[in-house]
Design a binder for these strands. Structure first.
Length: 266
DNA sequence: GAGCAAATAT
DNA sequence: CATATTTGCT
C-alpha cells in the first residue's frame, strides 16, 4: 500500500464515521413522488407558468417500501423516466462528488449515493461519467490548442479538479474548494427545454435527506453553502430546496423532460 | 456491477 | 443537431 493511499484514507477516516453508515442512507431512491407527479401531470393541465403548489395527494397506503419491495410492481420503478437534463449545477454536484470520492471510488454507484439526488439513477450517473471521462481525455490531449474547441458546453461549465488530470500527485481526500466560479460562463442560460408556451414546473425531487450527520451531510452542506455564495442574498435561505422541474409539452402529447437543478423560489 | 463503444431516442 | 439513454459486450 502506498503512503499516499494510507494518507488520504487516514484523513478520510476522520471525517467518515464508518462506511456502513453511508450505505443504508442511499435508500432514498425516488419514485413515489415522481410517479405521482407524473400521473398528476398527464391528467391535469390548464395552468401555465405557475409552479403550482402541488397539493400532495395523500398516499392511500401507509406502508410504502420504496427500496425493499419485492413482489409488488411499483409503477414508479418500471415507468420510463423523463430524459434527465444535466444542468451545470447538477454537473457541478457530480464533479464535486467525484472529486470528493477520488478516482478510486468514483464509480457510478458511489457517486450516485454521494450526490443524494432523488431521481438520479445509477444509469444516469454511469452514462454521464462515461461522457465525462471522455471529456477529460480530450482535455489532456489537445485541450488548449487542439482543434477541439469548447464543444462540451456542459463539462466546460464546471471547473475540473487538478488531480483528475494528474493522478501522480496527491489525491486529496478533501474536495477541492472551487471558491471562485467563472460567473461569465455560468451565466449562460441552461439547456432549457424550448417549450415556451405550455410547460409546467412541478417540484418532485429534492436533494438531501435530513437524517444523519454523516459525510454525506457534510458534503451536501458544502454544496448548499456554495450555492449561497454569489453576492448577497437577503432572502431567507431554504434548506429544503427542491430541484426538479418537470416540463411537460402538451403540444407533442406527452413529452416530458426532467431537469434537476437547485431551485430557489424568489 | 463497472467500463466502453455504438446504436437509438428525444 | 446535441445529448441523454439504451444495448451488447468484456
Amino acid at each position: 500500500m502506498r503512503e499516499e493511499d494510507s494518507n488520504w484514507f487516514a484523513k478520510w477516516e476522520e471525517e467518515l464515521p464508518s462506511p456502513e453508515e453511508l450505505i443504508p442512507l442511499s435508500q432514498s431512491l425516488i419514485t413515489p413522488d415522481l410517479a405521482i407527479a407524473f400521473d398528476l401531470h398527464r391528467n391535469n393541465n390548464s395552468n401555465s407558468g405557475q409552479p403550482l403548489p402541488q397539493t400532495t395527494p395523500p398516499q392511500p397506503n401507509s406502508s410504502a417500501e420504496i427500496a425493499g419491495d419485492s413482489t409488488g410492481d411499483e409503477p414508479a420503478r418500471t415507468l420510463k423516466r423523463p430524459r434527465l437534463v444535466w444542468t451545470p449545477q447538477l454537473h457541478k454536484r457530480f464533479v464535486d462528488a467525484v472529486a470528493h470520492l477520488g478516482i478510486k471510488n468514483a464509480v457510478p454507484k458511489t457517486i450516485m449515493q454521494l450526490m443524494s439526488v432523488d431521481g438520479l439513477t445509477r444509469e444516469n450517473v454511469a452514462s454521464h461519467l462515461q461522457k465525462y471521462r471522455l471529456y477529460l481525455k480530450r482535455m489532456k490531449s489537445g485541450g488548449g490548442g487542439g482543434g477541439s474547441g469548447d464543444s462540451d458546453h456542459l463539462f466546460a461549465s464546471s471547473p475540473v479538479p487538478p488531480h483528475f488530470l494528474h493522478p501522480t500527485s496527491r489525491q486529496s481526500s478533501d474536495l477541492f474548494i472551487p471558491s471562485f466560479v467563472p460567473i461569465s460562463t455560468q451565466q449562460q442560460h441552461i439547456a432549457a427545454p424550448p417549450s415556451q408556451f405550455l410547460h409546467r414546473q412541478i417540484s418532485a425531487v429534492n436533494f438531501t435527506s435530513p437524517t444523519k450527520a454523516t459525510d454525506q451531510a457534510m458534503f451536501l452542506a458544502r454544496q448548499q453553502s456554495e450555492l449561497q455564495q454569489p453576492v448577497f442574498k437577503p432572502s431567507s435561505l431554504h434548506l429544503h430546496s427542491q430541484v426538479a422541474n418537470y416540463t411537460q409539452d402538451l403540444k407533442s402529447g406527452a413529452k416530458t423532460v426532467l431537469t434537476l437543478f437547485p431551485t430557489r423560489d424568489d
